[in-house]
Simulated scan of single mutants.
Amino acid sequence: MIGPHRQGDVIGGRYEITEFIGQGGMQYVYKATDLVMLRDVALKTPKNSSATKRFKRSAVVAAKVNHHNVAKTLDYIRDGDNRYLIEEYVAGADLQVALLTNNSFIDPYLAARIFHYLAKGLAAAHHANVVHRDLKPTNIMIGGGYSLTDIKITDFGIAKMADEELIDAAEGGDSTLTTSQTAVGALPYMAPEAIERPREVGPSADVWSIGAMIFQLVTGQLPFGSGLKAVMRILRDPPSAIPVFVLNNPQFSPLANDLLNIANACMNKDPGARPTADDLVMSCGQLCYARSTRVEGVIGEFNYQAWGYINSNRQRVFFHKSSVYGPKPIVDGSRVLFSSYAGGGADRAHPVVIVDN
């Protein structure tokens, strides 16, 4: 295994390591079994021993947040010279892996649902006076893939660590915005004040990050790009132009337009002019989106460049081209993700998104 532990190691006499999950800029993450409560947990430990004091402070702060769209902080322990944060385990993958592996975008219905849940989790954190500071797709856990059985914001438990590293990078300390691993990942979602006045960052910077993520999910593009070029664009430019496919289909354009208007409000250069997380919860509550299960299928027939059928492990489902979101051509054999509803003769698919094969 990568990091300081192997499968079978027992931490604090209670948490048995079962597998290595991954690592971020500041921590190793393992799946472990709580031998007392007999449940799976996420066990996190800092890479840098000098960060242990900040790790504890972050854990104490994160424990204040209790919401079903936030991964719960369960425990903090010291075992020898090492420190460990125990967090609720979410079976699934981060948003980047779960939803953006096959395509760079998702349909507006799915994006609206994600936006609503993230806003609720963020509002709960801000009510507890906790700012995440490092919101990005890799810090959002998704259970159930495109069917979204779980959506949880993670890593409030390292908020203080991320905050101090990002301040150091923005002020040109031991690392910079383009050399710090944490800063490089955060930069495409970073508010202007986090770059110019990093010690003044507050809840509105989290709102900016949520807006940047929603822009990316709907359009398939980062609103200001990535890397060093993104810095000046974040500070002075509007978000990138909207791809034609996002608004040219009347089946999707009203909701996509609503989402982009909210996302753009979140990315106002003036922190005081942005909506609050509570405002986002209210705005998202007015959006119309479905909770239907998403399944995978293959286009088996497409007739007259207008309509056809999708073959799935369930049944043959009818679709019309107006229900397809995205710029990819519709051809026989295309792999798709879709929801289906009862119809006359055959069920009908909507929405349909063609995915990379």
Rank of each mutant, 00 (worst) to 15 (best):
R83N: 08
P4S: 05
L177N: 04
G121D: 03
L166A: 09
E16L: 03
Q23G: 07
T182R: 04
M1H: 12
D81K: 12
E88T: 08
G13L: 06
C266K: 06
D278L: 11
E88D: 09
F55G: 02
V331G: 03
K44R: 15
D270E: 14
A349D: 06
V60K: 15
C284M: 14
T149L: 00
L118M: 14
K53Y: 06
I114N: 07
T276P: 05
S253F: 05
G80F: 00
L35T: 15
N268H: 14
V317N: 07
V41W: 11
A194S: 15
I330R: 03
F55Q: 02
S147I: 11
S147V: 08
I153R: 04
D134K: 00
S339P: 03
A59P: 06
N69T: 03
A290C: 04
I151Q: 11
R133L: 01
L187Y: 13
I210M: 13
A51E: 14
P254L: 09
I142G: 00
T154V: 15
L122Q: 01
A346Y: 14
L95S: 10
L38G: 04
L337R: 13
G345D: 10
V10K: 13
C288T: 14
M282Q: 13
N69V: 03
M1V: 06
Y117S: 09
S292Y: 11
Y189M: 10
Y15H: 09
A112V: 10
N268Y: 10
M213F: 09
I114G: 07
P271A: 04
I106A: 04
Y309G: 01
L235T: 01
D94C: 08
R291F: 12
Y109K: 03
G144Y: 00
E301F: 01
A71T: 09
V246R: 00
Y76F: 15
R57S: 12
L95W: 11
P275L: 05
F319T: 01
Y309P: 01
R335M: 05
G333C: 12
P275M: 05
R294Q: 14
G25F: 07
Q286M: 14
L85M: 15
N66M: 08
E193C: 07
V131N: 14
P275F: 08
A186Y: 00
S226I: 10
L135I: 15
G344W: 07
F105G: 00
T149Q: 05
M213W: 06
S340R: 13
S226H: 14
Y84E: 01
